[in-house]
Amino acid sequence: MSRLLLIALVLVMVAVAEAQPRARPPSPAYGRRVRCKSREYPSCYYVEHRCPSTCPHQCVVDCETCRPVCECNKPGSVCQDPRFVGADGITFYFHGKKNKDFCIVSDTNLHINAHFIGKRNPNMGRDFTWVQSLGILFDNHKIFIGAKKTSTWDNSIDRLDLSYDDQSIDLAGGEGATWKPATGVTITRSRDTNSVVIEVSRNFQIKATVVPITAEDSKIHKYGVTDEDCFAHLDLGFKFYSLSGEVNGVLGQTYGSGYVSRVKMGVDMPVLGGKKEFATSSLFATDCAVARFNGTRLSSSKDFQYVNLKCGSGLDGRGVVCKR
């Protein structure tokens, strides 16, 4: 066989190979597996889903639609830098200031302050901030929940810090582990580590998860996080069972009877001001300018019953439809 014929044959074989359809790489396996755990939806009950790419580690299954949804896009969410989704479904940011405390909900029988941690951003003239802990007051009780400082993140290690009436809570490990300090108060692990649900009957429910700032997050947002501190913080979801029309606070005001959003719409990152208005002297202080707390349980028929509302919002959190 001549050299020219051999070369021609090789070229034909290469062309034929390139013309063959190539196998597609498998689609990426996103974050954790989640299931619907409500037996009220038998067609969806315990069907496994994977969290979508937009929230690979923070999603739940909407049992009614049998689809995974990002927890941080639901009304009543406080996540990230801190990104709030109000009761009206409008998303806004409240940056506050690092190492300071701010009132996020204040009503007659519920007061919640948040402690912010963060890093200074010299290029923006403000701090990057995240919610590190909550101080919760109701009746004559108080609950503390916080994220312990950590350098290198390992999700198998529990970084939750909990206390009830100044007594440290030793919550057993494992999903479903429950601690009940008093009638109507329940704290339950929603995952094996780093995630709990705090429930006070007829008052509120808080879902809290400790999460780190990852190297990828830091690179994308230019946080400048180093190996010394991954700025572990709380991603939060709130549900309120009985609020008055006078409720206030960074998040609480969005549930008020006469609330009109002060957020400027149509911008990429709508920011709410009012650091002085919502600032408080300590994590369990009720001295913010908008405080409403007096430690008594509401009983008025005019109270707003948000527990019976079913709300859904778009992926960007800017729209919401609520049905009673």
Rank of each mutant, 00 (worst) to 15 (best):
E199A: 13
E199S: 14
S201H: 10
S201P: 01
N203G: 07
F204E: 00
Q205A: 10
I206Q: 02
A208Y: 00
A208E: 04
A208Q: 05
T209A: 07
T209M: 08
V210N: 05
P212T: 09
P212S: 10
I213Q: 07
T214Y: 10
A215H: 15
D217W: 11
S218K: 08
S218D: 10
S218V: 14
K219E: 13
K219W: 14
I220M: 13
I220T: 15
K222E: 12
K222W: 13
K222L: 14
Y223L: 13
Y223M: 08
V225N: 01
T226V: 10
D227S: 12
E228L: 15
H233A: 07
L234F: 03
L234S: 05
D235Q: 10
D235E: 10
L236F: 05
G237W: 09
G237F: 08
G237Y: 10
F238G: 01
K239P: 04
F240I: 03
F240H: 06
Y241M: 15
S244M: 00
S244W: 00
G245K: 00
E246A: 01
V247R: 00
G252C: 04
Q253F: 00
Y255T: 01
Y255P: 06
G256S: 10
S257D: 07
G258M: 06
Y259N: 01
V260W: 01
K264G: 07
V267W: 10
V267P: 15
D268L: 14
D268P: 15
D268E: 14
D268Y: 14
M269E: 15
P270D: 12
L272I: 08
G274R: 02
K276F: 12
E277T: 13
F278D: 00
A279N: 10
T280L: 05
T280G: 07
S281Q: 05
S282L: 08
F284P: 06
A285K: 03
D287L: 00
D287E: 06
C288I: 04
C288Y: 06
A289M: 12
R292I: 00
R292H: 07
N294L: 08
